[in-house]
């Protein structure tokens, strides 16, 4: 497991959304859906962030985060050259098996999980991302490099007006993907769960929860997962963060 990263750049790419790229050795097993558990200089409890993108050649790791609380506010202030204790890669990541036609679906900040897919899998990608409004759009350029891209905004200020899942529902019968990889807010995931059921398309989703150790020992980051007809509390950090959407029990 790698432990050290050094900030190369850290800038605001949309209101309150930052993109941090750091120098980091990328272990071979790193893949889309893994996360990095970062210790801030001022706060010992680590913060988990999905690995947005990585480059083995350039030895860089990218995360995209929203400034929401004290921790992310501190993080947004770290300048080039700041060394951080960061554990990665953690979590299971997306296991796409032999799937070739891949839909990537992101809602809001959930989009941050997707770009690493191009470094992790070979296949034919179609990306769908949705935001509240034009000013909130992130990572569209990065995702357009990997295949077709559909952008939706709730207010119609850019791309298609409506929810990202409207777009997914329309394209799914045309493009017939083998698998959908997704991350986003709960209403989007609930809607995606219905679509997945209706079309019988395997859908994997990356979840989040308040986390402790990040390695599976403290059992703090529990999410409800239905298996064998029973609901179980499973660990986002070790059993996840990626789960089959049909197993996820939403509130």
């Amino acid at each position: 497991m790698e432990r050290k990263i050094t900030v190369l750049s850290n800038k605001e790419i949309a209101p309150k959304i930052f993109k941090l790229t750091a120098a980091a050795k990328i272990p071979d097993k790193t893949r889309c859906g893994n996360f990095v558990h970062i210790q801030l200089k001022e706060k010992p409890l680590r913060r988990p962030f999905c690995i947005c993108d990585f480059s083995r050649e350039l030895e860089t790791l990218t995360i995209v985060y929203e400034v929401k609380g004290e921790g992310t506010k501190l993080l947004s202030g770290y300048q080039k050259g700041t060394c951080l204790d960061a554990l990665f890669p953690l979590g299971n990541g997306f296991d796409i098996k032999s799937a070739k036609k891949i839909f990537l679906v992101g809602g809001g900040l959930g989009t941050a999980v997707l770009p690493a897919a191009f470094k992790s899998y070979e296949g034919e990608f179609t990306s769908f991302i949705g935001f509240k409004s034009k000013e909130n759009i992130i990572l569209a350029e990065e995702l357009s490099l990997g295949g077709d891209l559909f952008v939706s905004t709730e207010d119609g200020s850019f791309g298609e007006k409506g929810f990202v899942t409207d777009c997914v529902k329309r394209e799914i019968s045309l493009r017939k993907p083998d698998i959908i990889l997704a991350c986003g807010p709960e209403p989007m995931l609930k809607s995606l769960q219905k679509i997945s059921c209706q079309f019988g398309t395997k859908t994997l989703v990356s979840l989040e929860e308040r986390m402790g150790c990040g390695v599976g020992a403290c059992v703090v980051c529990a999410v409800k997962i239905k298996r064998d007809g029973q609901e179980h509390n499973m660990r986002v950090c070790k059993d996840g963060p990626v789960f089959d959407i049909n197993e996820v029990v939403f509130n």
Binding site: K43, L45, G71, E209, R210, G212, V220, C221, A222, V223
Partner: peptide, 18 residues
């Protein structure tokens, strides 16, 4: 166990309720 959130950061410590 209990439902999430099960952890909270506090000054110089953590609260847990697993």
């Amino acid at each position: 166990g209990n439902d999430s959130p099960r952890i909270a950061e506090t000054p110089s410590g953590i609260l847990n309720s697993v």
